[in-house]
Nucleic acid binder design. Structure first.
Lengths: 226, 226
DNA sequence: TGTACATCAGTGAACGCGCGTTCACTGATGTAC
DNA sequence: TGTACATCAGTGAACGCGCGTTCACTGATGTAC
């Protein structure tokens, strides 16, 4: 729609206020967590009356959804940029994607928790969140895509192989099912590492998180034959 | 203290009420999540007046702490029992521990989220939670302990090696640093897999979670040389 | 064994607070003729 | 270009609700002599 390109003053003001609300909500998130996100608190911070928020978001859940979609998009963009900067060496591309995701998570711990932590009770993520979430996995798959076919690994059982082939298809990977399963596992490993670090489960165990993370990213690269 | 063994009626009643409060709180947790756990709702369910709860717990946070400690203990006990049942084959012991953790998590998704999901905002876990949490990792290490020294792996950088040696010491493992790092990684991988499954991140990707999980548990066993 | 006293569980009212959402409204900004 | 009308942003009051925590209290249960 042209109205999005040549916007009138009203439209531009609206976009600005929506952005301000989301920014304030993000700040609020950092203090109270997702479950405690309050429309009234957000309105207060913007010197608005609480009911004014309803001009921009139909409900608290709709604002939450916007934050989640923005979060995935922001994270995906960070990963994609890192991948683009990393050149064409598959292992470097993999490293760049992993590092970008961890760095983003450390910079935005509460948004990370919103995306990959406990689900918000009573809130069901709508389908709008699927696409940006998929972009993150696509960035993680970039190294394998660059590397092309890999030495085959033992095939997983049929049900798993079928899932793996669907994933390969969706991400444009020409890789055997076993390797795709390893990529899925590497993703859960990656988010497991980041979650443990951010949520405090490695307190008193791991002291040099940078080195530990780098070590494991390379181990995963080996496993993926990158 | 003897009073814990030969308890009077008052003491026995007290223990029973504490248990009832925790049970109700756990049920409430399942509906509202940790952030929404409400003393008043718990009291209502037990047909008590809300202030009566304060005879048993000094504050909401103290009740939360009790739930967390119980959660880790319960999970650790489940893992330890599975390990004990599994016999002496290291790989079987490893499989049993992993399966027990996943099964417990699926049976208690909200307690799992309380333990391994996003931290509760404004709540700092007290040191009481460390011991039972460590028992879980000890159960995961049982396979490696049984297997004894493994073929050495490339040594990690010094800071990581030092952490690994401290962990080996604490868990009573006679294993090289590289292998200990792999065990730590396997733990984060395990909890990453379980979290992704429970928190819905594999929706539309993995259809046969049992098979996928079993496949990865064996891959980790290979990596640990079990 | 019987009695006096201390301990404890549970009550009910209250404090002060914050929340999401609705509604009728005012006034400013844009649009169509 | 000027005017009439429609659209929209933001206001302020209100609804009905739930929360954690404190406090003075009643009555039952245990303990010491």
């Amino acid at each position: 729609m042209l109205s999005h390109v040549v916007a009138g003053a009203r439209e531009r003001a609206r976009v600005a206020v929506v952005a301000a609300i989301k920014a304030a909500a993000r700040r609020h998130l950092a203090q109270e967590g997702a479950a405690g996100l309050s429309l009234r608190a957000v309105a207060r911070e913007l010197d608005m009356v609480s009911s004014a928020i309803y001009r921009y978001f139909a409900s608290r859940d709709e604002l939450l959804t916007a934050l989640i979609v923005d979060g995935y998009s922001d994270l995906a963009t960070a990963a994609e940029r890192a991948v683009a900067r990393a050149g064409t060496d598959p292992r470097e591309v993999w490293r760049a994607a992993c590092r970008a995701i961890r760095d983003w998570a450390r910079r935005h711990p509460h948004e990370y928790a919103l995306l990959y932590g406990s689900p918000v009770p009573g809130y069901a993520a709508p389908p709008d969140t699927i696409d940006p979430a998929t972009r993150v996995y696509a960035a993680l798959a970039a190294g394998l895509r660059l590397a092309g076919p890999r030495p085959p690994t033992p095939a997983p059982v049929a049900t798993v192989a079928r899932d793996a082939e669907a994933v390969a298809e969706a991400l444009g990977l020409e890789v055997d099912a076993g390797r795709v399963v390893r990529l899925l596992a590497a993703s859960t490993q990656l988010f497991g590492l980041v979650s443990f670090e951010l949520f405090g489960h490695t307190k008193g165990v791991v002291s040099d998180h940078d080195a530990f993370f780098a070590d494991r990213v390379d181990a995963m690269a080996d496993d993926l034959a990158l």
